[in-house]
């Protein structure tokens, strides 16, 4: 596995993700120190935060059963080795196997954006992505954004601006916002943000407040980085 996705020099892939020694290492050091060298500011927060969450430990160290494939996912800085069926969707694996239920399923067909998360820093709809296609990938979910009780600037802004109502699309909105704010190709004006966020439906219609939150967080993130 060590040859997979040596991504942006994050460094974690130089360890065998399946080995207990790596997990001990991560627990001791915290992933943030590994990520600090090259990752953007929000990514450091993302990976460090997971240390507080005590996610479900990898439990598929054994050989995969017939029809299954063993994959390694590094989720919020924590490595997981999983035996999955080829028809298992990334979203379902995160929710049902790793119990990371912060990422939501809104349509299961890539139309609503509720399941947005980051794969190797890129925002995707996780309901459209088979888990086996993410072997070796670095995944950041909503659970990985905050650092303990210290919320990510986008989370702080969503809370302060009441940028939600029911909260169900919120994880996806926040993950898209994080990606957009780190994408130099997307303009900082309101119209550009609206256009870029349009893959994330908010049926409660809190768009005005979401826009305000994204623009507010922009200032905070620039200040932090």
């Amino acid at each position: 596995m060590s040859d997979h996705h040596n991504n942006e020099g994050l460094g974690v892939e130089t360890f065998d993700a399946r080995s207990p020694s790596r997990r001990r290492f991560l627990k001791t050091m915290g992933a943030s120190s590994l990520a600090a060298a090259t990752a953007p500011a929000w990514a450091q927060i993302a990976q460090a935060g997971q240390q507080q969450k005590e996610p479900v430990e990898p439990r598929d160290d054994g050989a995969p059963a017939e029809g299954e494939q063993q994959i390694q996912l590094t989720v919020n800085g924590v490595a997981h080795t999983l035996n999955v069926k080829p028809n298992a969707v990334l979203l379902d694996v995160l929710r049902d196997r790793l119990m990371l239920t912060g990422t939501k399923k809104g349509c299961d067909q890539g139309q609503c954006g509720a399941c947005t998360l980051l794969v190797n820093d890129t925002a995707i709809n996780s309901c459209l992505s088979l888990a086996v296609s993410h072997d070796g990938d670095e995944i950041t979910t909503i659970e990985g954004l905050s650092q303990g009780d210290e919320l990510h600037p986008v989370q702080v802004a969503f809370w302060a601006h009441d940028a939600y109502q029911c909260g169900y699309c919120t994880s996806g909105q926040i993950m898209s916002a994080v990606a957009i704010l780190n994408d130099d190709n997307i303009g900082s004006d309101d119209a550009s943000v609206r256009e870029a966020m349009s893959g994330n439906i908010c049926r409660c219609g809190a768009y005005k407040n979401i826009l305000a939150a994204v623009q507010d967080a922009r200032g905070k993130m620039e200040g932090a980085s």
Binding site: E143, S146, Q155, V156, W159, D162, Y164, T170, S171
Partner: peptide, 12 residues
């Protein structure tokens, strides 16, 4: 701001 806001913005 909402008393349940932190849970909503953290996915909890």
């Amino acid at each position: 701001k909402r008393i349940d806001g932190q849970r909503k913005v953290t996915g909890a």
